[in-house]
Structures are given as structure tokens and as C-alpha cells.
Design a protein around this nucleic acid. Structure first.
Lengths: 339, 339
DNA sequence: TTGTACGCGTTATCAG
DNA sequence: CTGATAACGCGTACAA
């Protein structure tokens, strides 16, 4: 059978209470006793039963990460960097990947009401009011990334401003017909990011008196393939754009391929700017908006750890990390004659 | 406070036993009773305490995924695809990312002996004998991906043969000086994959009577940056290679940048082939060896699910999924005059 | 410094 | 079909 704390206690000739104290490094244990218990536990290959421990203590030293089920670079990078600091902080991580909106509330309930975890990290999810209040009524620390609730600390960037910067870059290069490769038209997950960035795009256009042409806004689903298809669509319309802003680097790279496949050159014929500064961006020379993706995960995890170690919540707060325009080789001056 | 099964029982006017049965869909509950209990539970916002449940039942409906802490595309893709099927199968996933070898045994102990999970999925880890026997002595189902133990089912590909195919492709194009961009020279994690692929490379060379030049084998650390640096090193040696085999697409793409940065053309001056068929590979025209990465995760998860639902273990088995040479634009005939 | 004994919230067994 | 109750393994007052 499995060895319990009782077994260790007997083998070591002490009580279970002493074993518990010794193994967890609590005070009030004679050094010699502690050493002895440790050796016996080691010899018996004893490991604390985390579930029993949680039941008795109320703490599970586990935190839940809830995020969309997608294998985009962004999610992986955020999650991985968060995991690294949580793990270093002594916490295990339970990962909930949400594939459809219906799962979301269910997963949160299991996590929150089920007392599975000591804290929750939410990455880029559109939380229903019910979800938010469910989490708000408890005492469980919650930190969010690119997810605005008005209740929990939120890490992210200023997507509107960043998108504005991207669009302005194109405008400053002389482009006036600017395509936008975005998310999904009727996105079931209701992601906020595409909306915010679209707004930044429109603001930049507006401040330069450029008319918004709806047919220049096409969905790309945040994937390489989606970006490629979107670009094909952009190329097929009457007055195709001379500059394109893709809301993610993946989509931008997809678009680049389509452009080159039809024999057009970048940036001579068409300029392309992405968003993220994906690991690969530098290697394909993609101009983009860099956002500190790993920073999101690390900061959020640290914030959670701080809360967990008793630090007072500073109320709802929004931490915006800086973004930066990285000019590489896919954007250049507009060569099209004005009309 | 938090609502317990007791609260629900009282509110519903039944015993806790009945609540438990009703909520879990067990037989021997009157339909009317079940409905009533469900409504009361819903109204009270009750959720089963998973830790208490596990303690009483012995099952946690959680599976652990243990993998290296790295944000390479491969790991994310494998893990995500596994998570998707595990989640659909009703299991939660606890993700352990191992940053250093020392953590590995510790993490496994916590997982196995700590009875945290009902099953374990191991991705690309070099398991010490102690680790293996620790897991083998229990009854916990274990499935591995790209990890050979001789004890547990292993999903993966034939890395030797696949690497041989890649190298032969270069040889068939007339290349004789073939560089290899590999892992780390004294990799602390002792990954087996680079070794296997290096062997395939050497075999292909041998079967064509091509001499192995040690200086043609440079480390690339499986990253874009590492690949770029490795390529710079390859370019700096006396007789630089005319063809390069990078053990991952990330490294291959890094190498491509270095080549183009120094004014050389691909594939006219140098051919490059990668490994993985990374999402981005098609978009940069990279010739590569495709391996069914998502398939690894899905198959492993399904295998685990089958074991969990009582299916007999078929003993140690090794499932090799097919790889495929995908020729794109980065490999071409060797133009160098023979010497 | 160490030991005793109870409680944590469920599940499972066994009566009824 | 339903209810009482004994585990499950550990943490923690409290007592010694």
C-alpha cells in the first residue's frame, strides 16, 4: 500500500504531529528529531498526500491558469512564463484551456467553488458578469492578463494606442489605403483585443482624415493560414491596400506569403506590419509592435504570489506594460501615385 | 462560508449520501429526488470539493503532464493537443514544467507518491532509472512521448530514420559538405532526440561514403537565435557546408537569416532543411521533415484515457508515427564544383 | 519539545 | 430507493 504519515511516525518512533511539523520545516522541533524524521520519510519514500493536506489545512499550493484553448504563440509564451515563476514560488499549476464559451463558466465554478486552487490567473478571456461576481464574492486571489473586469488586477498593454502607433507608422510612410487583418467576425469567445486594436486603427485613420473603407477590414483568425487568406481577399478588391496592419505576427507572416506568391514585393509594392514581436518576427524581418508577452506572465504570477503571501490587495488596478514599434524590412514608403 | 454537501442535504431534506449519489449521476436514486437535489445544489451554488472527493474515493480526475520548461513550438503543440482530448474526456490537467534535471525526480515524486493524479503523461524527458522504477512500482498509468523507458507506452517517430531521410535529401541534391545544427553540447537534460537524429545524419553520410567532419556539427540549442549563431559558425570554418540540416525548424529559420544577412542565397548557395514542419515553415518556404506533433499529444492522451477506463495495459509498446519529407524552397542542387 | 485527538468534506458500505 | 456512519490522510489546537 501507500505509505502514510502514520507509517513514518511509527518507523521514526514519534507522533504524526511531529512528523508533520518536521517535514514542513515548522519551528518547535528538535534538530535531531527533524533530521531523523526526514531520513525515515526518505527511506520510506513518503510523500505528503496533497489532497488530504489541502483538506486539513485549506491550502492546496496550486494555482489555476484559465486560458483559451489555442496554440498561438502568445498564449504559450504567457502561460509558460507565468508557470516558471509560480513553480519557483512553490506552486503547482492546474491548466484549464477553454475551447468554447460554455465551458468557461463551468470551469471557473469547478475551480473557485470547488476550492481546487489557492489562486487564479486568467489569460485573455471575456468574463461574463456571473463569472466575475462568482470570483469576486470569494476571497480567492485573482489576477488577469489582457482581461478587463474592473474587479481584479489586470496586466496588459494599451492596445488602442499600440494599434494607433502601428497604423500611424504606415500613414507616415505615405500609405492611405490601409488594410486591416483582424480576428473573427462573430467570434464566439468575444475577445476584446481585436476590438481595441481596430479602434486604434480607426483613430489613426481619423486623425489623418483618411476614410475608413469597410472592405479593407478582413478576418484572419489570428493564424498563419487565416492571415494568408485574408491577404488574398484584400488583394482581390477593387482598390487594394498599399499597407496592411495585421493584428498578430502570425497573420502578418501569412499575409507576406500571399503577397510574394502573387509576385508582388514587400515593401516595394505592399507594406506589412504585425503585432506581438513573435519569436520568429526578427528572423523574417517583420516590422511589428513589440509587446512584453513574457512580462505579462511573470508580472501576473508575481502579483498572485504576493497576494498569496498575505499582501493586501491594492484594489482594482490596471498595469499597462509598454509596447514599442520595431521597424524591420516589411514596411516602406508608399510608391503608389496619388489619385 | 463555503457550502458543503451537508448544507445541500439539509436544504433538500435528504441525507448527504443521497446528495452525493444524485449529483454524480449514480443509479438507485429516484428521478424526482435527483432533480430536486440538483436544483437545490444549483441554488446554493454548490460544487464538489475535489480534494475531499479524492480523499474519499481515491480518484482525482486529474492527470499530470510533465515536460521540459521551454517555450518551443513543439512542446506547446504536443501539450495543447493532449490537453484538448484529456479535457474532453473529463480530466483536469496539472502541468509540471521541468527547468532543470534536479527538479525532475522531485516533481515525479510529488506527482506519483503524492497521489495527486490518476495518470501521467511525460513529454520528452530523460528519465533516470530511479524515476522509472518509482513509476513502475505503482499502478498509475503512464504514457510517454518521445521518451523511451522500456516500461511504458511510448509515442514518437523514428528519429534516426527521419534524420537519415533529411540528410539523404541533401545528398541526393549533390551536397557532400553537410552541416548539422544540433542541440546543446553538454545538455543537462540529456535529451535523446538530438542524439538519435545525429545518428541518422551519420548513417546517411556513411552509406554514401561521405566523411564526417566534426567541425560541421555545431550546437543550436533548438532556438531561432541558436540556429542563427550556429550558422554563423558554420560559415566561418574553412570549407563551409553547401547544405545544412537543422534539427528543428526554429534553428533552420535562424540559419536562413544568417545566410541571407551575409549576402548568400538560398538555395542557390546553401540549402537548408529543418525538422518538425512548424506552423510557420510553410510560410517561409522551408524544406523540412514533417512529424505529426499534434498527433503525438492526441494519441498519448487517448491511450491514457483508455487505461484509465480500465483497459488492460498491452505491456511496453512503442508507437511510431510516420514522418514525411516536405520539399519546399530552401533546398536545391549543389552548385559547388567538385574538388 | 512532543503527543493526543478532533475535524476537514466526500465517498462507500451496509442496513433499512 | 434512502440514511447512518466509518473511513480517507493530514493539520492543528490543546494538553503534557
Amino acid at each position: 500500500m501507500t505509505t502514510t504519515i502514520e507509517d513514518v511516525a511509527q518507523a521514526a518512533g514519534v507522533s504524526t504531529a511531529t512528523v508533520s511539523r518536521a517535514l514542513r520545516g515548522l519551528p518547535n522541533v528538535a534538530p535531531s528529531t527533524r533530521d531523523h524524521v526526514r531520513q525515515v520519510a526518505e527511506a520510506l519514500n513518503y510523500a505528503i498526500d496533497s489532497h488530504a493536506s489541502r483538506l486539513a489545512s485549506g491550502r492546496s499550493t496550486t494555482i489555476g491558469i484559465v486560458m483559451p484553448l489555442a496554440d498561438q504563440w502568445f498564449y504559450n509564451r504567457v502561460s509558460t512564463s507565468a508557470e516558471a515563476v509560480l513553480s519557483a514560488g512553490g506552486y503547482d499549476v492546474l491548466r484549464y484551456s477553454i475551447a468554447a464559451p460554455e465551458e468557461q463558466t463551468e470551469a471557473l465554478r469547478r475551480l473557485i467553488s470547488g476550492k481546487r486552487v489557492d489562486g487564479v490567473l486568467i489569460i485573455n478571456l471575456a468574463l461574463a458578469n456571473a463569472d466575475v461576481s462568482l470570483m469576486a464574492e470569494g476571497t480567492l486571489p485573482v489576477v488577469t492578463i489582457e482581461t478587463d473586469t474592473g474587479k481584479f488586477p489586470a496586466i496588459g498593454c494599451n492596445n488602442v494606442a499600440a494599434a494607433q502607433t502601428a497604423t500611424r507608422h504606415l500613414i507616415n510612410l505615405g500609405h492611405r489605403q490601409i488594410g486591416l487583418i483582424s480576428g473573427l467576425p462573430d467570434d464566439p469567445m468575444h475577445f476584446a483585443i481585436p476590438l481595441e486594436r481596430e479602434q486604434g486603427y480607426r483613430q489613426a485613420l481619423a486623425e489623418h482624415g483618411i476614410e475608413v473603407r469597410p472592405e479593407l477590414n478582413v478576418p484572419g483568425n489570428f493564424s498563419f493560414a487565416g492571415g494568408a487568406e485574408a491577404m488574398a481577399q484584400l488583394l482581390s478588391i477593387h482598390h487594394p491596400p498599399t499597407g496592411v496592419f495585421a493584428l498578430s505576427d502570425e497573420m502578418a507572416i501569412g499575409a507576406l506569403k500571399t503577397i510574394r506568391d502573387v509576385g508582388l514585393r514587400v515593401p516595394e509594392d505592399i507594406s506589412v506590419i504585425g503585432f506581438d514581436d513573435h519569436d520568429v518576427a526578427a528572423y523574417v524581418g517583420l516590422t511589428t509592435i513589440r509587446q512584453p508577452v513574457a512580462g505579462y506572465g511573470e508580472q501576473a504570477a508575481r502579483l498572485l504570489l504576493a497576494r498569496l503571501s498575505g499582501e493586501k490587495a491594492a484594489g482594482e488596478s490596471r498595469i499597462e506594460l509598454p509596447t514599442q514599434l520595431i521597424v524591420r524590412d516589411t514596411t516602406g514608403p508608399c510608391r503608389e501615385k496619388g489619385e
